[in-house]
Design a protein around this nucleic acid. Structure first.
Lengths: 185, 185
DNA sequence: TTCGTCATGTAATGGGTTACATGATTAC
DNA sequence: GTAATCATGTAACCCATTACATGACGAA
């Protein structure tokens, strides 16, 4: 989703793409070349992206070219029509997996292009999920307290504080969404 | 380290072990059976742990017993002398990898059994690491600000706030360590 | 007696990192 | 000219999750 979304803004090459993904998610998800380039390859096979360089674009894709040696220049990728469609589908997706850790932050990064109703849905779903986690942690801490050493307690307390903060943050985002809705109909 | 540390407190079986690890790290690191049991197997081969049940303990370890069928009862694991040694080594380990995300929380969970000087070293190393991350994030945010939409900004700001809090938390822990040191020599 | 939980394990699968190999371009 | 960075890619490896298969035991 990150790759499609970034290419949706502008065509670019892999190296640039990696830096952007890093910047987008603020350093989470390192996205090594070992996963980026194979991903680009797969997406090309899927027909979601294509190579802009006209000379290169016409090359038969699966033909195993001279394995290693040979000139290599920048390879600029762009979304195809199917790619745009796929990205639109991803933006419109909803359901429990959208508020999981692995998905949520990427979704949020493309919220500006997401439907307002869906935004609210996802934020609320995410908040429920984080609240569940918080309650679980809280219960565990209540059970454990007094029975563990200072450091374990400190670790668990810090974890609890963190999810607590996340719930409040999500609540603010939700509040903003709803007031925006009433203000600008 | 988590497994060795928990077995160091008391012998127990796999299922119990899993719940304890979950509790210890407050829900991070799910530790599925698919990774727990193979790990126990490897540790048994290493000679770090052994099976307490006397009937079972004498069984030749690598002999591929009746593959699936056959009675299965609780298998209680305990640390061997080598296992205790290995855990002691882990507790005494120091260096950059100790303040990485993947290591730090488990280390902290066993801080009560860690040497006081080493505790301070690890906390300070960890703080430096998190500060670096914070500064990187801060710089990225300064560069990005004004050029990205509200949501991306919100995401990055929340990420920055989180690491900021972690630095402060670590500073408190460090302060506690040093005052404890002066109070109880 | 049957359901839920406790309990042990294996195999397939997936997906990412690390290390490696190569070459182009820019700045000093 | 040479070091740093930009740039592309592959292959080996690691390691965890998922799905599956099995069985014991207590309570309703």
């Amino acid at each position: 989703m990150a790759i499609l979304g970034l290419l949706n803004d502008a065509p670019m090459h892999g190296y640039e793409l990696r830096k952007r993904v890093l910047g987008l998610l603020g350093g989470f998800r390192p996205l090594s070349y070992g996963s980026l380039y194979p991903a680009l390859k797969r997406m090309r096979e899927q027909g979601w992206i294509c190579v802009q360089d006209p000379a290169r674009a016409t090359e038969p894709l699966p033909a195993n070219a001279p394995p290693l040696t040979g000139k290599r220049g920048k390879v600029v990728y762009a979304l195809t029509a199917e790619g745009k469609e796929r990205f639109a589908d991803l933006l419109a997706e909803s359901g429990p997996q959208e508020w999981e850790d692995e998905r949520f932050d990427v979704r949020l990064a493309f919220f500006a292009q997401t439907d307002a109703d869906l935004r609210l849905q996802i934020l609320e779903g995410r908040r429920r999920r984080v609240e569940e986690r918080r309650d679980g942690l809280r219960a565990a801490l209540a059970r454990t307290r007094e029975r563990v050493d200072r450091y374990t307690l400190e670790l668990q307390q810090h974890g609890l504080d963190s999810v607590d903060r996340e719930v409040r943050w999500l609540s603010e985002l939700i509040a903003d969404e709803t007031t925006d809705r009433n203000t600008t109909p």
